[in-house]
Amino acid sequence: MLKLEDIKTFTLNVNGEKKSVILGPTDVLLDVLRDKLGLTGGKPGCENGDCGACTVLLDGVPIKSCLMLAVEAVDHEITTIEGLSNTVVQDAFVNEAGFQCGYCTSGFILNTFALLKEQPEADDAVITEWLEANICRCTGYDDIKNAVKLAQNNLR
């Protein structure tokens, strides 16, 4: 049985790299990624599971890193926005201006990335089901929608 009563060193697998990090039982994954690993691409927007700005992929599945203990991520693969580079989805967000202030953007991109990987042919209803998990206050969602569509087309 894994016990964590104080602090202990663990290995986290982040963006394909093994990172040694000291974790306590109350450490939330979002805080560990940001404060201990310097991966600040995931944002605290609410720390309450509501906004999706903190979204990361856990074994390819989007999750809200503010609602997960860091110790739970041991033995899993974590992907943060820093782990994506020049992907079709990112290019599409650039070309369709799928962001304004950019604070929500890593969450939207990671969620879209996972969606199009799992369901390349996702229709509007499925896209909405996935993306309604993220809040964007700037764009009115239109350019985000266009970006997702563009990425979907370009991946075909």
Binding site: M1, L2, K3, L4, E5, D6, P25, T26, L69
Partner: peptide, 21 residues
């Protein structure tokens, strides 16, 4: 960030879970 303290256990069997509880 969680400001309180608690410990964390991940039992492998339900028996272990019940026991530690």
């Amino acid at each position: 960030m969680i400001a309180q303290s608690f410990s964390y256990y991940k039992p492998a069997t339900f028996k272990e879970a019940i026991d530690i509880f």
